[in-house]
Design a protein around this nucleic acid. Structure first.
Lengths: 108, 108
DNA sequence: CATATATATTGACAACTATCAATATATTAT
DNA sequence: ATAATATATTGATAGTTGTCAATATATATG
């Protein structure tokens, strides 16, 4: 696995490291919700929610569609599954770990 | 799911959000390694590695055993699996999502 | 005891970010 | 047109953290 891939996966985990964003994901994984509906469940300001939704969208975890004044958000399941698979890869003994491809000189 | 649970899971994802720590996990998921061996694979200082190993240990993802001057690190698989399960819970429509337990007043 | 190696800790600094109030934009209803 | 509602953007701020050099501690070896 390349350096850049660890960075990319790290960025996604960074997005998932915020408890509010985890709550949002939990909510919209049950059903599609508009921002004002999500906001009712949380105790944050509207601008903060808007910020979180932007972060979730920009990284690919969430998608949205606009209907009149409302913006409906939902989870991109394939994207999440892809991340899960990559994490499985990292946490198990797989041949594409860079410990098999990089030669090191260890004095041990 | 309680507020504190989202916080706890968020903290674990925070730990996983660093690309260097992801590399370390990838390495030691292949086989147990001592710090100096891990260091050979990475381009960071020894003190930085020590810091990362402390973070990984303190959150429960990694465990260690000391043998002479060497400290050997390995993954706590059950812990990782537990996190994966919790993430599956968050990213799917499950009855313990707080959208089912909290009553909201939405004008929609 | 002295030297070398392995690991941990401390302190400092730069970079990042979650949050809010205020404001802006867009759409609907009256 | 005006008011109300939904969402986004713009600073500003406070808190967090990854990194390194320097230092400390621990163990083995000669």
């Amino acid at each position: 696995m390349k350096d850049s891939e660890y960075k990319d996966i790290g960025k996604l985990f960074k997005v998932l490291s915020d408890p509010v964003r985890l709550q949002i994901i939990d909510l919209i994984s049950c059903k599609e919700m508009c921002a004002c509906e999500i906001l009712e469940f949380l105790s944050i300001s509207q601008s903060t929610l808007s910020h979180h939704m932007k972060v979730l969208k920009e990284c690919g975890i969430v998608t949205s569609r606009k209907d009149a004044t409302w913006v409906y958000y939902s989870i991109v399941t394939e994207f999440i599954n892809d991340l899960k698979e990559k994490f499985n890869n990292i946490t198990s003994d797989t041949s594409d770990c860079f410990c098999y491809t990089i030669k090191i000189e260890c004095k041990k």
